[in-house]
């Protein structure tokens, strides 16, 4: 599935209704060049399945890991990702921008 906005939010609803632990990640702020605009969504379940995107694939892995924590704790989190430091194997954005992502449990 291509993951249009409404598919992502419908999927979040479907997964939650079928009893899966679900989190929704949303880009809330961007600085500089950012791959996805504010409001972009990624839906994640407790097994690490996901649909949508908050970046061009650069930080989704880290968001999924954090989202699984959020599903367990029920407490929302704000994550911030800046420029990638390739030497340090740090997760980040190679485009040079910074994004803030809000991760919340669907319950």
């Amino acid at each position: 599935m291509l993951g249009r906005d409404e598919h992502i939010l419908k999927t979040a609803e479907d997964w939650a209704q079928s009893g899966r632990g679900v989190a929704l990640a949303t880009v809330v702020e961007t600085w500089g060049s950012a791959p996805r605009p504010v409001g972009s969504n990624l839906v994640i379940d407790s097994d690490g399945n996901f649909l949508g995107s908050v970046s061009g694939g650069c930080v989704e892995g880290a968001v999924v890991t954090e989202a699984i924590d959020v599903i367990e704790s029920g407490k929302p989190k704000v994550l911030e990702f800046g420029v990638a430091d390739e030497a340090a194997w740090q997760v980040g954005l190679s485009c040079g921008g910074t994004i803030r992502v809000y991760v919340e449990k669907v319950s």
Partner: peptide
């Protein structure tokens, strides 16, 4: 997000 908010949103 509460499920009922998500359902209203999708509706």
């Amino acid at each position: 997000m509460k499920l009922d908010i998500l359902q209203t949103l999708n509706g």
